[in-house]
Design a protein around this nucleic acid. Structure first.
Lengths: 241, 241
DNA sequence: TCTAAATGTCTATTAATATAGACAACCATA
DNA sequence: TATGGTTGTCTATATTAATAGACATTTAGA
């Protein structure tokens, strides 16, 4: 089952990634547990101990739980879907995929816009912007880490509004903006950095999806530029045209 | 500069990924070369030999070229952008980002639709579909590996039409379908598998973006379901709403 | 309650990864 | 043409990853 040797990625990590994906795809749903270690070892063509390292990593992530004598049980397998449309909203997007949605304000402040931020927002470089660092959770599990910038002139107080409501949509509404539109979204992928590991509770080497997005008000004036990071093993995007 | 030890990803690979990303971000554009090995070793807090392993991997990918006495020169740094819209077309999407665009037919055949293919296409499971395995290149460099399924009843001969034109749009046109629409796209990310490494000329451990998409004719009838794989270090998607 | 099927733990060995240091070879330029 | 800065190559050693085998422990079910 083609794992690759001597390529800088340890076998146990490749196998952990493959098993995680299989769980997410529902391949083991019938049994509710992963195949026995000996079977997996045969499938991947490695030693049983190597499979055990992979399963230990998944147990660490809380995805499986090994029970002596019974097998290795699947604890969690969700993959959240985020629709990206002209009216993309984080909380509405999750919909009923999670019972409990949460938006935490990690940090905020006013700063001069760097060129990377000023350009999408249509501001002069150095113009004052408000930066919000947020962490979003679904059913207690972190699903995205986001940095968002807003023109400071128009959105003074948005940090407090977000902190109180846990929702960008609600914060905009509190500041007198009842509606807004997503005009573009850029999607890339990368390895998780150190901060991702902490905030998103990932294990090293995990993959993250990165979405850079611009929102405007109904008149087309840019109001928010955001860079959000999602764990790729449990999140996907859907673009409906 | 926070590389992580004992996490299943070798230091040289983490460093290679970081340098590749820095090159893509244009951080070394001024000099046209990466910093000296000793400087990088200090930045990442590792031995010079470890950095050399990373640079050797990037040289293998054709991204840099080391010249004794001068330094390690940057050979290539592009990141292709694919706009995803209601009228997404592969060749048009690349536009002038590449001079030469190429679509290769790797394999084709008729087969009964699996449930994963039948559902998006609105067919009964087991209904005949034509499968096309294609490889797309821009300026001679592979940028996507794609598997597409078409209802066999309607698109007999599409394999030949694609082989002759190297374009899905042209193949549809040849079969009497002048226009079609992208109705949804699902984006995920994963590690490259063995076939990706070969077809997309990646080094092991690379990240790929996966797009699953459905196209319909102007009347809304599903005509193509496709799963495409792109190297994440040199490709990004843009969704314009 | 015995047995088969799992996971848990231990020892030992080999291969790959990372560090360390020394010096050669090459290039640009003052 | 001498020099400083850079990559290339070599040897040696330590740590981590992977394999191999044996046996203990736990669970579910006949």
């Amino acid at each position: 089952m083609n794992v690759q040797r001597q390529n800088g990625v340890a076998l146990w990590r490749q196998i952990a990634d493959r098993i995680r994906a299989s769980i997410a795809n529902g391949e083991y749903d019938a049994a509710g547990k992963v195949p026995p270690e000996m079977v997996l070892a045969a499938q991947f063509g490695v030693n049983r101990h190597t499979v055990r390292s992979a399963l230990a990593a998944l147990a660490q992530e809380g995805i499986v739980r090994a029970v002596q004598g019974r097998g290795t049980l699947i604890e969690r397998k969700e993959r959240l879907n985020f629709p990206i449309t002209r009216r993309t909203r984080f909380n509405e997007g999750i919909g009923d995929q999670a019972r409990e949605k949460e938006g935490l304000l990690l940090q905020s402040g006013e700063e001069p816009a760097s060129s990377g931020v000023a350009t999408p927002l249509g501001l002069e470089e150095g113009a004052p912007v408000i930066r919000l660092e947020t962490l979003r959770k679904a059913d207690g599990r972190p699903v995205s880490r986001s940095t968002a910038w807003f023109p400071a002139a128009r959105f003074a107080g948005i940090a407090e509004a977000y902190r109180d409501s846990g929702s960008i949509t609600a914060a905009f509404k509190a500041l007198g903006l009842p509606d807004y539109l997503r005009v573009w979204t850029e999607i890339t992928a990368s390895h998780a950095d150190e901060q991702d590991l902490v905030d998103l509770r990932l294990s090293p080497g995990a993959i993250i999806l990165i979405a850079r997005a611009l929102n405007t008000d109904p008149d087309g004036a840019p109001i928010q530029y955001a860079v959000s990071r999602f764990p790729a093993d449990s999140v996907q995007f859907t673009i409906e045209n």
